[in-house]
Design a protein around this nucleic acid. Structure first.
Lengths: 247, 247
DNA sequence: CACCGACTTCCGGTGAGCGAAAGTCCAGGA
DNA sequence: TCCTGGACTTTCGCTCACCGGAAGTCGGTG
């Protein structure tokens, strides 16, 4: 068997096909799938046919492929902070009802924020996060909260890593960021001002249990100047509620 | 190679392992996985190790396996009525805010109801449905709505199939059920009274577009007698809103 | 300490899977 | 109409990844 294909297992090829999809590639043609999974066209064809038959992928009438319902089912069974999510759900709704702004529940995953839930507000604020998306910690409200309460090695790593600017307001100076994080701990909440997306500001608070900070609640608005204290109060109430209801 | 294992593809074994998990089997030991996927222990061991390495499964510290974060990610990319879900989300929140009861968004999948979203109310009403669950159509509010507006062959199939009773109030008489469905069409909403679960009643209305009925909105309460008309109004308002916002 | 059940590793035979190549299909232009 | 190019589909024979019996490991238990 020629070249780089030797030694790869069938399982890895199947997983490669599934992993070929991502948030910006929800639909792929067979050729794209083959290329992204690094498979020859016949191999991709054969495996994809089997995945479609099982329901892991679906083939659209225009010939493109997408993730299928059966993988959707399987994914829902993943124990991704299930306790936190189910406990927090009603409080997220309360927050949404009280503010009508975009509300987030997030946890730390290594050196990124993982968004577990987002309730999208009706106002016209640009939102880049959605359920399942991972964003940097230094440029988001929930991220700053989680980073401020993360173990020292994570904080060091993020602060010493490249702080890529997303907008002209993104904080790219480690010293300034660290001072902000210190203040997040003492004041109990974090804010961002157009640091991830122009036109979007955010506030966030930690969810604390006896085991420490297990997640963060955040709200995204177009302008913080007037509403900051009101939003912080609402977030703190919700966060207390979640903490109390957690096992 | 001996026996029934011949002819099976590696891909089918991998998918069998993923499919071994379901709502009542979220965690499985290696032996259970092997048995449920019909694999020998060494084969299961080898494949599972590869799935864990990729992130499709996770191994808990107690040795049991569960669906991993990477499959959760992939599942979120599935185009499972994404338009309907995103459009309906704010209206579901409105409904929840107005009633504080459990709110459902569901579509028909063959002869079952598939629950796309559920917002769980704070009242103490027993709820068996959750996102991704499939329930019969004849014993749920959203199910009756979707069945009443389903193609005739689906209606016939459900009515002639076994109507298994879940409680003593489940409707098991095809004639009675058909009369109810006719009334659902004329009155524009469906109700159930402890037909799926004792202590849970429901109201539901269709979401209608130019292409016909594309889904249903439902509310679950402990008692319908007083609030029926109020809930129907709220549901109809929300349903109109979703219809208008759908592409 | 022997036993048990569950998991892990080893290893030789073999058939599932690989990709080159040929075939099919369709859309767009000459 | 025929040609052309691109994308997908199918065939086929070689070969190496995979399978499972068997043996090894490990922790718990009487």
């Amino acid at each position: 068997m020629a070249g780089g294909s030797a030694g790869r297992t069938v399982a890895s090829r199947v997983l490669g096909l599934i992993g070929a999809f991502d948030a910006s590639h929800r639909r792929l043609t067979l050729s794209e799938l083959a290329a992204r999974a690094d498979l020859s066209l016949p191999t991709a064809h054969r495996l994809v046919a089997e995945l479609v038959e099982w329901g892991a992928l679906v083939r659209d009438e225009d010939g493109t492929y997408a993730v299928g319902r059966r993988l959707w089912d399987a994914g829902l069974l993943a124990p991704v902070a299930t306790d936190l999510r189910s406990v927090a759900a009603p409080f997220l709704h309360d927050l949404y009802g009280a503010t009508l702004e975009t509300v987030h529940l997030a946890v730390r995953e290594d050196d990124h924020v993982l968004y577990l839930e987002t309730l999208r507000g009706t106002r016209n604020v640009p939102i880049v996060s959605s359920v399942g998306s991972r964003l940097p910690m230094y440029s988001t409200g929930v991220g700053k909260v989680l980073l401020a309460h993360a173990p020292e090695d994570v904080r060091t790593q993020v602060l010493s890593g490249p702080l890529r600017p997303f907008t002209r307001h993104t904080i790219t100076t480690p010293g300034l960021l660290r001072r902000q994080l210190d203040r997040v701990v003492t004041e109990g909440y974090a804010t961002t001002a157009e640091e991830m997306t122009l036109g979007a500001c955010s506030v966030a608070v930690p969810i604390t249990t006896s085991a420490g900070v297990v997640g963060a609640l955040g709200i995204v608005v177009s302008d913080l100047r007037r509403s900051r204290l009101r939003l912080v109060s609402a977030l703190k109430v919700a966060s207390q509620g979640v903490s109390r209801a957690l096992p």
